[in-house]
Design a protein around this nucleic acid. Structure first.
Length: 416
DNA sequence: TGTGCCGGGAT
DNA sequence: ATCCCGGCACA
């Protein structure tokens, strides 16, 4: 029986959605990625999204530069030679490569290598993603691929939130760290982040993670100083914690209980969401130092005014005791991620004590990072604690509610 | 009484 | 599929 929670999880949420965006490398190619998080800018209308790519890179994209369901259509983009597209030829879907795109005449010349033909199409006739197939067909195709060479395209048969899984030891932690760090280091304030990860068995899985580095090192851009102090998840409870950005802030844990996943094994995935909130307390301990090097350079290109200069590069977490992070001061910036999760301890966001015992064994890098870990206790859902669109935006701003809230359905934006 | 959202109807 | 809302559970 599917648990109510898993059924309520936002299957239509943009988080986790497979989309395409211009390659951050700047070659003009539209490449597949997964929406990992979004940030709404109250009052400004526009949202920005963190998109992860199959090679492990991340990029923060405005909604205008994202192609996919719920975003832009392909028609407004320019295709360059070599772009992979899908099109229907003689009633069958074929994959082809763009050779030329004449925007004025709306003609795209596509070479369909499989058929050995070239065809002239309007851009509306082209797709970046393969059409949705029935699960049976997908399974059949998987059987075929298993015998053949590995498929490298994220934009293949995946539809929506399905995330291709490839587990590598240590990579899960690293990838999550990348995502979390990317979120936490964004300079904007007064906005909401919602992130999504997929839990399979006991670990987070992400699309095509990069080769695991030998040591866990975490990146923070040269913009707001931020720290990832702990990042842990275990077998029974997944717990992730991190602190960042100076003395006034910490990041709340996001966690989930495996029992939930087991309650609905057919689903095979669990999501958790967290949002950033303002921390008003002044008496938190100081945190600083900036572990670096995991995220690719250029991920956070902007360096807003009033932000302190870059902190030293490349401190590898695995070599530096967490206490070192705690001992340094840092410029303040208010950042906190709260779990908005039924598995929270009590009323307000709990503090990260300097050290907390872990309820489960840790391994590898996570273990070394565990001394500032927070824990999440018994799964007590307290109704009314979770912020939902209605509470967050108020009745008068109903237009800002997520669709589900507007329809009196389970909130997609602030999951509990 | 307010909130969250299930279940179901209309289109 | 999308949109809407009655009505219930719960705080």
């Amino acid at each position: 029986m599917a648990s109510a929670l898993s059924r309520r999880l936002g299957k239509r949420s943009l988080l986790g959605a497979l989309v395409h965006t211009p390659n951050p490398a700047g070659d003009g190619m539209l490449i597949p990625g997964l929406i990992q998080a979004f940030r709404s800018h109250p009052g400004k209308g526009k949202s920005s999204y963190t998109v992860s790519f199959e090679d492990g890179r991340f990029k923060e994209c405005g909604e205008d530069s994202i192609i996919g369901p719920g975003f832009q259509s392909l028609s407004s983009f320019s295709l360059i030679a070599g772009q992979e597209v899908f099109l229907t030829v003689n009633g069958r879907e074929e994959v082809g490569l763009v050779e030329t795109h004449n925007k004025e005449r709306n003609e795209v010349q596509v070479h369909v290598a499989g058929l050995g033909v070239r065809t002239l199409r309007r851009i509306e006739e082209l797709r970046l993603m393969e059409s949705r197939r029935s699960p049976r067909l997908q399974e059949l195709e998987r059987e075929h691929t298993r015998a053949g060479p590995p498929e490298h395209s994220v934009g293949g048969t995946s539809s929506g939130i399905d995330v291709p899984t490839r587990k590598s030891e240590g990579v899960d932690e690293i990838m999550a760290a990348m995502v979390l760090t990317s979120l936490s280091c964004s300079p904007s304030t007064n906005s909401t982040w919602t992130g999504r990860y997929t839990l399979t068995s006991s670990s987070i899985t992400v699309a095509h993670p990069p080769s695991p580095p030998n040591k866990l090192s975490l990146h923070c851009p040269s913009t707001p100083p931020a720290v990832l102090l702990s990042l842990v998840w275990g077998i029974s409870n997944m717990v992730m914690g991190f602190r960042l950005c100076g003395r006034h802030h910490y990041v709340k844990v996001a966690s989930l209980d495996r029992r939930k996943a087991e309650a609905d094994p057919s689903d095979g995935e669990e999501d958790f969401y967290y949002t950033e909130v303002q921390e008003t307390s002044e008496d938190l301990p100081e945190y600083s130092s900036v572990p670096r090097s995991l995220s690719p350079p250029g991920f956070f290109p902007q360096n807003p005014p009033g932000v302190s200069p870059p902190l030293p590069h490349h401190e590898e977490v695995s070599d530096v005791p967490v206490s070192a992070f705690l001992s340094q001061s840092a410029p303040s910036c208010l950042w906190q991620v709260s779990a908005d999760h039924p598995y929270k301890v009590g009323g307000l966001v709990p503090r990260f004590p300097p050290a907390l015992p872990l309820p489960f064994p840790l391994s590898g890098h996570a273990q070394r990072l565990s001394s500032t870990l927070l824990t999440v206790t018994s799964p007590l859902k307290v109704r009314g604690e979770a912020k939902k669109c209605r509470k967050v935006y108020g009745l008068e701003n109903r237009s800002q509610w997520c669709t589900a809230c507007r329809w009196k359905k389970a909130c997609q934006r602030f999951h509990d």
